[in-house]
């Protein structure tokens, strides 16, 4: 390769490739940022809801000994309930006969 101070087409291509690898485009990094923040918001919501529900079901009675596995079981049950609700809701909003009303 010939050394030159000016910008050759070849150098530009190399620079562009390098910039794609080292740094995502502004649009891509903006999209990633939005998706990460949404994921965080959803995780926070889930943690709060599971804590509320499972605290109530497992530990709300101070007179009885807490069941050691209760919170773990409740957590798994909540996640399964989430999936059931999600399936039902999505089936309902995708049903063309009712989706217009919701």
């Amino acid at each position: 390769m010939v050394f030159s101070l000016g910008r050759s087409k070849e150098n530009d291509e190399i620079n562009n490739t390098a910039s794609i690898i080292s740094k995502p485009s502004p649009v891509e990094s903006l999209k990633n940022q939005v998706q990460q923040e949404l994921a965080l918001a959803n995780a926070t919501e889930l943690v709060n809801n599971i804590t509320d529900n499972c605290f109530q079901k497992c530990l709300s009675n101070p007179y009885s000994d807490p069941q050691p596995n209760c919170v773990d079981q409740c957590l798994n049950k909540y996640l399964k309930a989430w999936n059931t609700v999600s399936k039902t809701y999505i089936a309902r909003i995708q049903d063309p006969s009712t989706s217009g009303e919701i």
Binding site: L38, A41, N42, E45, L46, N49, D52, N53, C54, Q56, K57, C58, Q67, C70, V71, D72, Q73, C74, N76, K77, Y78, K80, A81, W82, T84, V85, S86, Y89, I90, I93
Partner: peptide, 28 residues
């Protein structure tokens, strides 16, 4: 997508409270 997600969070929260009596098993 997020609106759907938030509705699912809300329904799961409300319906789990009403439908699940005890957490003595990890499956529904």
């Amino acid at each position: 997508k997020q609106k759907v997600q938030m509705s699912i969070h809300q329904f799961t929260n409300t319906c789990f409270r009403n439908c699940v009596a005890s957490a003595n098993s990890s499956s529904l």
